[in-house]
Amino acid sequence: MMDDPREDAALEALFQAERTRAPEISPEFMARLEAEAVAAIPKPAPQIRSAPRRTSWLAGIFTASGLSGAALAGIWIGFAMPESFDTLTLTADNSVSLTAFLPGADMGSLFDE
């Protein structure tokens, strides 16, 4: 058969000519491919915003609960055990006199030192 160098060269010449005659892609097909590329572009990852909202919402609940609890406790203490507390009194020389909050507790000793 053919290991003739001339035939090799001739075939290579055919290849070379053919490389310059690549099948042309139609503009319509090219446009379709570009449109598909744009349509298929990956969507950006969704931003996680619900979690912080939920956190702040929960924090609000806890804050409200804490405040309500403290208020209720204050009211209960004030009405249920008024005798347990002494009062802050304003003396004539505008100094504040702090007396024991709880009977029996030596609160004054805290300030002696």
């Binding site: 690549a22 099948p23 042309e24 892609i25 097909f29 090219m30 491919l33 570009e34 590329a37 744009v38 298929a40 572009i41 990956p42 950006p44």
Partner: peptide, 27 residues
Amino acid sequence: AYANGDTDAGRTMVRLLSPMLFGYATR
């Protein structure tokens, strides 16, 4: 770049790759 949302990168890839692929497939 395309994966990060660059549509121009996608179009450029189409223009670079598809003629070669089309030539190969046609032949």
